[in-house]
Design a protein around this nucleic acid. Structure first.
Lengths: 369, 369
DNA sequence: CTGTTAGCGCGTTCAC
DNA sequence: GTGAACGCGCTAACAG
């Protein structure tokens, strides 16, 4: 978004001038706080307080105000409130992609958590571009949000400074860190990768490889953990590590597996940085007539709904995406709530190994923070 | 969202009182239009006009104002603008589900289309509940949006009235109708279902069934078209039509296929109302050792990315979800733009039969509006 | 616990 | 083509 596009207001048209009356949804004789106050026999500010800090208003006044609100169908004007209080009820949500299936569960958690709240979500898609993420953070912050939720912990230096000085709670998600900007909820990508390495090793695979695409910081951490896990037993072999900066997809999983076999034909297992890639790898393995899991093992990541239903069911790592979405909003609400002085600022979740049919099953369930 | 929750303002906390100075993102000495005007040697209103209706300001003034905007890093205050103009730049987006993979592509189209626009998206998830959809429409309309995008054409009577009287453009999506509320973009669900019926019949299947879940109005239209297509050749058999109101998923596809075979073991093909169901059906067919497509055909709907990579590749109907998302925003922008008097109010898109390996391939590509 | 006063930053209206 | 005055609906700060 360029600076000028920001001020290039599109609301110029004169679309259906005039005012509607149906259901009191209109601007001209909209019900205002004044109307409510008058109906309740108090001043506007008292009505305002009754709605925002009920404890600070006498019970009698409060009751009359609430009933006036109901009767008149009063709905607060968010714009006026934002202008007067220098704070909107918007929570900015910065995501690297809208295509990724992981995103849907995360988003569902977020939306479930804002239900019955006056919070509102505004999504920014930065398409895995750190500079775009930075500029979106700047844009969002200009809107005086109630909170900001970002993906991961690898913002640019400038972005990180803005987040640290942001006049609202900030939540980093999907990863852990010892130096969070503010709040944080996630699981260790690195430990998850290590867990996968152990699983494959325990299952008896000795020439394990890797398939990775889009290589965002979290995928990289996962992969670093995986390779470190292999290294401790002398099984890390760079020839078997196939990655591409291109987007991740099922089709890409098939291609990368072909590349892997071209580079190292004796590879006997593969960790795919996500389930899309893993599904593509499994399909490709089937096309090649490989015996999965006996002679070739496949492990995915995220454990999407479909994974457990594939033939054979895909071994994967279940990640708490939905919980992270919910938790991120909870952290913001807690920060906004003056009563909750001692709410945690950090939530560590678990990623769980789901050993299934695409790896020799060793019946161990493992967990990574 | 209850009436009271609407006025239950969560912005009560006193989170980090004080003002930040980094990057001019702050409230106290925020750069305002006045600052810009002063720097440019004009009045505030002229600066305001220069940004919104550049043509109405002299070239000299305009140039000075723009350069002041750049130099000062002015960012308009959305709340103040909304309050003064009684119109926000928010476009409300009502979706029935956040889980559905179809949603991701649609959303991506929407977000791509608002890029370099000052429009902003606000998503409402009504979870396939018409009454919730109605209340969300009411809530959104109270916010004076720039536009509203809804899914399908089957709103409640009250919702429909609100939409017709809405003081902003409204776009119905994903389906066509002869009585649109206002703008509309989509393809015919009914014709798509008919197309699938023809495809299966042409491929030589004679005992075709159906798997459906979640049964929202669009799925129902699809299915009605399918059954009508079967009926014309005397092949519609209610025993083979298996549906459930439960959510759609890959796992559900497997279950429903089992149900279908329990009810009508000689079924030789199945239309699945979406690709998740179809993937589950294919996996289940594999588990049962059915020969697909020779003795059993499977056709999905939507043509997700993974479908073409399955083994065998899934026959499906490609739906223009991304285009619908983009087009919905385009319709709204056109409606908002006073210059575009004769922009279309209706866009008919095509759904395309993608015949692949799960049905006997008859090499005919078909298209449904 | 309640009210008064004074804006928040911008756009509309109507002059010039 | 430009500007002055006013108000959008609400809330912060203070006084009572």
């Amino acid at each position: 978004m360029t600076a000028l596009s920001l001020v290039n207001n599109p609301i110029g048209g004169d679309w259906r001038r005039g005012w509607i009356v149906y259901d009191n949804i209109m601007a001209r004789n909209r019900i205002t706080l004044d109307d409510v106050a008058r109906a309740a026999g108090v001043s506007a500010i008292t009505a305002s307080r009754a709605l925002r800090q009920p404890a600070k208003v006498s019970e009698r006044a409060r009751a009359r105000i609430f009933s006036a609100v109901q009767k008149l169908g009063y709905v607060p004007d968010a714009a006026a409130s934002a202008l007067a209080s220098t704070r909107t009820s918007v929570v900015g949500l910065l995501v690297p992609s809208l295509t990724n299936a992981v995103f849907a569960d995360f988003l569902r958690g977020v939306y479930d958590a804002i239900e019955d709240t006056s919070l509102t979500i505004q999504i920014g898609n930065f398409r895995y571009s750190p500079s775009k993420e930075e500029s979106l953070i700047r844009t969002f912050l200009h809107q005086r949000p109630s909170g900001l939720i970002v993906a991961g912990v690898d913002q640019t230096e400038a972005a990180r400074r803005m987040l640290m000085e942001a006049p609202c709670p900030v939540v980093q998600t999907m990863e852990l860190s010892d130096q969070p900007v503010d709040r944080i909820i996630g699981f260790s990508q690195y430990a998850s990768g290590e867990m996968v390495a152990r699983h494959l090793i325990d299952a008896g695979y000795r020439r394990p490889g890797l398939l990775g695409a889009r290589m965002d910081p979290r995928a990289q951490a996962r992969i670093a953990g995986y390779r470190s896990g292999l290294r401790t037993v002398g099984l890390d072999d760079a020839r078997r590590m196939i990655t591409t900066p291109q987007p991740s997809s099922v089709g890409m999983g098939g291609q990368l597996l072909a590349d892997l076999f071209a580079a190292a034909p004796d590879t006997d297992a593969v960790f795919c940085a996500n389930d899309d890639l893993a599904a593509g790898a499994l399909f490709e393995a089937q096309r090649r007539g490989l015996r999965v899991p006996e002679s070739f093992g496949i492990c995915g990541f995220n454990d999407l709904e479909m994974s457990r239903h594939m033939v054979p069911p895909l071994t994967s790592v279940a990640t708490p995406r939905y919980e992270i979405g919910r938790g991120a909003i909870d952290l913001i609400r807690a920060a906004l709530d003056p009563l909750s002085g001692e709410m945690p600022k950090r939530i560590e979740l678990d990623a769980v190994m789901s050993a299934r049919g695409t790896t020799r099953n060793n019946k161990n369930e493992r967990t990574a923070r």
